[in-house]
């Protein structure tokens, strides 16, 4: 039954993807892309990947949609030309894909317990985590500790995107000085006059933020962690900005605070890593952070997850405001 549901969902996924490519109105395409992400997230749940599903839903359907819409508000929303040389492209693309399909026939089947993936490094994590790290969510243990260096890199990828967007948008005719930006922000009063949305917003936003904090600190026990929490909290503030207007959102959490989150989170992660070296072990070795190595691991994971959450939240909001506070140039 689950298999059949999976097949159904995957087929829907393909149809949605085709619709994204075919839609001529870009806002429609963005919405379809959001639906695509939600469907993908449901699929991940079926494939036992709860953490990934949560992230894909928050990022793909939430943040990504908002960013696309924020950018589209500054430009033409219609696609004016069709594809260029569609047949040639199709031939190239189809031949690449036939290669992939060719490869599949020697691949282990879905869920095959004999597959190499399920028999080498993966089970080791499942077996040893209770002993070394002792937190229930093995995904968080791998993310935070065994492969914590990747996650450090991930935080810096987000950070790079943040400074990249800020750098790009600090130039050009749309860039303004602080006073001008404030004026633009004040003009964007959002949907404050829509009573219904206003009331719903007041009800929903606190819960979104609360849920974000829960996801942040519950990541060791259930699905969640810094990244998901950062994205959720950012989504809460974005919702606030959409309903109450840019200016009020910036008053609630000003740019300086966002910069602090962005820089501070990345540094917090790095400092926890360096503490490992200073206390006589290796970079990002949490066991030496406390007398009891297992507690040290837990402490380390909590700290770096906080760093991840801070940077992600700061960067996403900073990027959102950078798009939202910009004037459309004709």
């Amino acid at each position: 039954m689950t298999t059949l549901f999976g097949v159904f969902l995957l087929t829907l996924l393909v149809i949605t993807a085709l619709a994204v490519v075919r839609a001529r109105h870009l806002v429609v395409a963005v919405m379809l892309l959001g639906i695509f992400s939600l469907l993908l997230a449901v699929n991940f749940v079926l494939l036992d990947a709860a953490d990934v599903a949560l992230t894909e839903a928050a990022v793909g359907a939430g943040i990504s949609t908002v960013l696309f819409l924020g950018a589209l508000a500054l430009m033409s929303e219609r696609e004016h030309y069709g594809s260029s040389r569609p047949w040639l492209s199709l031939v190239v693309v189809v031949s690449a894909v036939l290669v992939v399909v060719y490869a599949t026939f020697d691949q282990p089947r879905l869920g095959d317990p004999e597959a190499p993936v399920l028999n080498h490094v993966g089970p080791w994590y499942l077996e040893k985590t209770p002993e070394y790290v002792d937190i229930p969510n093995v995904v968080t243990a791998v993310l935070g500790s065994y492969r914590g260096y990747d996650t450090l890199g991930e935080v810096f990828v987000v950070f790079t995107a943040g400074i990249g967007v800020l750098f790009l948008l600090s130039a050009g005719p749309g860039a303004q000085n602080n006073g001008r930006r404030r004026a633009v922000a004040e003009k964007k009063i959002g949907l404050r006059d829509e009573r219904l949305l206003h009331v719903i917003g007041q009800l929903v936003i606190p819960f979104v933020l609360l849920f974000g904090l829960y996801v942040q600190f519950h990541g060791e026990y259930g699905p969640g962690g810094g990244f998901q929490a950062g994205a959720l909290i950012a989504a809460g503030f974005i919702l606030y900005a959409l309903i109450e207007g840019e200016q009020r959102a910036l008053e609630a959490l000003p740019q300086g605070g966002l910069n602090f989150l962005m820089v501070g989170g990345a540094l917090l992660y790095g400092v926890v890593g360096l503490a490992g070296i200073l206390l006589g072990s290796n970079f990002l070795a949490y066991s030496v952070l406390a007398q009891d190595p297992v507690f040290g691991q837990k402490l380390g994971i909590i700290l770096i997850e906080a760093g991840v959450g801070m940077t992600v939240c700061g960067v996403l909001l900073r990027i959102f405001h950078a798009f939202a506070c910009r004037e459309r140039i004709r």
């Binding site: 990947a49 953490d51 990934v52 992230t55 894909e56 990022v59 793909g60 943040i63 990504s64 960013l67 696309f68 993936v117 399920l118 490094v121 993966g122 089970p123 994590y125 499942l126 093995v138 995904v139 243990a141 791998v142 993310l143 492969r147 990747d150 996650t151 890199g153 991930e154 990828v157 987000v158 790079t160 995107a161 943040g162 990249g164 967007v165 790009l168 990244f227 992600v312 990027i319």
Partner: peptide, 21 residues
């Protein structure tokens, strides 16, 4: 297996970063 999930968490982040830029 938790490992591919961890890898994809990272890849999702990379994806949104690329999109934003």
């Amino acid at each position: 297996n938790p490992l591919p999930q961890v890898l994809i968490l990272t890849a999702i982040v990379v994806g949104i970063s690329t999109t934003a830029l």
